[in-house]
């Protein structure tokens, strides 16, 4: 982890309210792993509204160009500021942060990736890293509508198997990704599972895995409002349960954002 400044290479609208920002950073490219994030200052250097930095997961890394990218949805002051930046501008960020996913050098393993909405962002970098090590990857993702067609185009380049769902039927099959999984869970009993998406989706996944007695490892990437991003303020906690059935609040920024689904307590 380092406090870094990086030149913006591109900052483009790729769908309604969704942008992709690519940043030059040899340090990040050398050190980051899938599932990690950066904490970006989303205001001019001496302006403090919005006050806190904003965490964004790493969407992609292109080693040859020494760039990494993030996806962001325009939501408030912070993301509006990001949107206003242009190639050549410099962003101030801390990274790479969080535990992330160490992709094993051994290949030929099976991975099931499950995404919901903006939660697909870190799964792209993960899928790409897994494919690079010649693993078998299946991606299932669900969206509200057809705003993520760009994501399907990106995924197609990785040449992995995938299935997309949308609630309104405008992109992929009509339905929700958790229903699909509920019906097909037996096909994925020997897969390692990584998921990222809304809390309700992760909660349903945990229930499906419990109900079907899924023994293999199932992980999820979590998101919370953060302040420090490095584990000191204890602000971004989620409730977990340990082996002795004791509840512990763990920080999403440092203990996570990757947790085993079985240890997370949804309330």
């Amino acid at each position: 982890m380092k406090a870094l400044k990086g030149e913006i290479i591109s900052n483009d609208k790729i769908s309604e309210n969704i942008y992709k920002m690519t940043v030059f950073s040899p340090y990040m490219v050398k050190h980051c792993i899938p599932g990690q994030f950066v904490n970006i200052k989303c205001s001019e250097s001496t302006v403090y509204d919005p006050l806190l930095r904003r965490p964004f997961s790493i969407y992609d890394v292109e080693e040859g160009f020494k760039v990494f990218s993030i996806l962001y949805l325009i939501k408030g002051k912070g993301t509006k500021y990001l949107k206003s930046l242009e190639p050549g501008d410099v962003i101030d960020f801390l990274g790479p942060l969080g535990n992330g996913i160490k992709v094993d050098d051994k290949s030929d393993k099976k991975y099931l990736l499950i995404g919901g909405g903006m939660g697909v962002a870190p799964l792209f970098y993960l899928a790409k890293s897994l494919i690079l090590k010649k693993n078998n990857v299946f991606l299932a993702a669900g969206f509200k509508d057809n705003k993520f067609i760009f994501f399907e185009k990106a995924i197609q380049l990785l040449k992995i198997n995938y299935q997309f769902f949308s609630e309104d039927g405008s992109h992929g099959a009509k339905g929700i990704v958790t229903d699909f999984l509920n019906n097909h869970i037996d096909e994925y009993r020997d897969y390692t599972i990584y998921s990222c998406g809304p809390s309700e989706m992760l909660k349903s996944l945990k229930e499906i895995f419990l109900r079907n007695n899924i023994k293999n490892k199932a992980y999820a990437l979590f998101e919370e409002i953060m302040a420090c991003g490095i584990g000191v303020c204890k602000g971004c906690v989620i409730k977990t349960i340990d082996k002795d059935n004791k509840y512990i609040y763990k920080t999403v920024c440092k203990d996570g954002p990757l947790f085993e689904l079985k240890e997370v307590v949804f309330e």
Binding site: Y48, D49, P50, L51, L52, E224, I225, M226, A227, C233, K234, G235, C236, V237, I238, K239, Y247, I248, Y249
Partner: peptide
């Protein structure tokens, strides 16, 4: 100490509200 129930942070205009609870 386990600290307080989340959410523990809320950003306000140029301010930060916290209720960490001394975890």
């Amino acid at each position: 100490m386990e600290g307080n129930k989340p959410p523990r942070l809320c950003e306000t205009s140029s301010g930060l509200l916290n209720s960490i609870g001394l975890q």
